[in-house]
């Protein structure tokens, strides 16, 4: 290095330190993924609903309010099932456990495993939307030509903001990769099977 110049630290050290920073920031970008999930879990703001809860006796039914809950069903591009809610919407009082049904039909000749991913809009309602039973908690298996009615039991927490009068619950079913196998026993006509 030129002895006449400022050279405080030699170039190699600077490069090493800066490269370390570069690698650390690359990692930080990926660390944002779990951080974001934790943050959203705590605040419940990205529409992801929580896990199964058990109803507490203390939750009071607030009959002074009525909230409209709408149901939406969609399928991931690769998923060959049919999937829809049995009822388009229901009106509920906060605190009142309610059962609704979705129905899925596997019209193919193959046995398929699916996983439903729920989402609640508006996002701010998600943490107040609690499910005691849901087909999304486990994988669902449909044999060839099988039709299945799948219930959801939910309760809207009375703590929900006064401003929210409508909630949309939506599910996207996606296929478990590699789960599609030719069924050995194709049954006809389609049988209906209740899983509760």
């Amino acid at each position: 290095m030129n002895p006449n110049t400022s050279g405080e630290i030699d170039n190699k050290k600077i490069i090493t330190r800066l490269l370390f920073a570069v690698v650390a920031m690359f990692g930080f970008g990926f660390a944002l993924v779990p951080l974001y999930d934790v943050f959203c879990d705590i605040t419940g703001i990205n529409g992801k609903t929580g896990d199964q809860i058990t109803l507490s006796e203390t939750m009071k039914v607030d009959t002074s309010r009525e909230i409209k809950v709408e149901f939406v069903a969609s399928l991931n591009a690769e998923m060959p099932w049919e999937f829809r809610p049995v009822q388009k919407s229901v009106r509920v009082h906060p605190g009142e456990p309610t059962r609704i049904d979705y129905v899925a039909i596997n019209k193919t000749d193959n046995r398929i495993i699916g996983q439903a991913v729920p989402s609640v809009a508006p996002g701010l309602a998600a943490q107040y939307f609690q499910k005691t039973e849901c087909f999304c908690f486990t994988e669902q298996i449909l044999e060839a030509k099988e039709q299945k009615i799948m219930p959801v039991i939910f309760v809207v927490d009375p703590g929900i903001s006064e401003d929210i009068n409508e909630i949309t619950l939506s599910y996207t079913f996606f296929i478990k990769p590699g789960s599609e196998v030719i069924s050995e026993n194709v049954q006809e006509p389609p049988k209906t099977h209740y899983n509760n």
Binding site: N2, N4, E8, I9, D10, N11, I14, I15, L19
Partner: peptide, 20 residues
């Protein structure tokens, strides 16, 4: 960009004239 940035930092830290 990253290589350019490392270069600029190294230049500024190490190659300033005496008194700068």
């Amino acid at each position: 960009s990253i290589m350019g940035a490392i270069n600029i930092i190294a230049t500024i830290m190490n190659l300033r004239a005496p008194g700068m």
